[in-house]
Amino acid sequence: MFLKRPQYLTLLVLVFLSATAWAKPKVELTMTSEKEVVEKNNGVETVKRVPATDIESGQVLIYTMKYSNTGDEAATNVVVDNPIPKETVYELDSAKGAGSEIKFSINGGKNYKQPSLLTYEIKGPDGKPVRKKASPEQYTHVRWIIATVPPGGSGELSYRVRVK
């Protein structure tokens, strides 16, 4: 049995629409923690990263998040939010993420801005408000914004903190 032309076209449209409806982005995210150790071989010291399940006060932790889109549609407006652990302090300029826009919050994640725009207000000696630039110790959250992650696409985000 052969379909008539209008029926054939209808079927094609349905197949296309179904395929479109089934396509979805699927973002996956993993997080690891590492620390740096100094190894000495033949008198030469080298710094090596090792997985960190434990850490000492004052040492630096490196958090790395790997994301990937295992779906069959691009993920858009991908936003990764990471509260900085309260036991740690963000290390200046340590946040990385190729192809992402990085912003920070100093108010518990209510607002995110680039470091140069992160300011807060205090009362000056004359009683008038004085605007101050936030220091890394005041950062509470890190945010990465990735416009698009295509199907099969992946990337890596990272930052460093020092344990109080």
Binding site: I55, T76, N77, V78, D81, N82, P85
Partner: peptide, 13 residues
């Protein structure tokens, strides 16, 4: 125990 949790939000096309 230092617990670090990241959250990712995203849209489809």
């Amino acid at each position: 125990v230092i617990t670090n949790t990241a959250t990712v939000n995203y849209d489809d096309t």
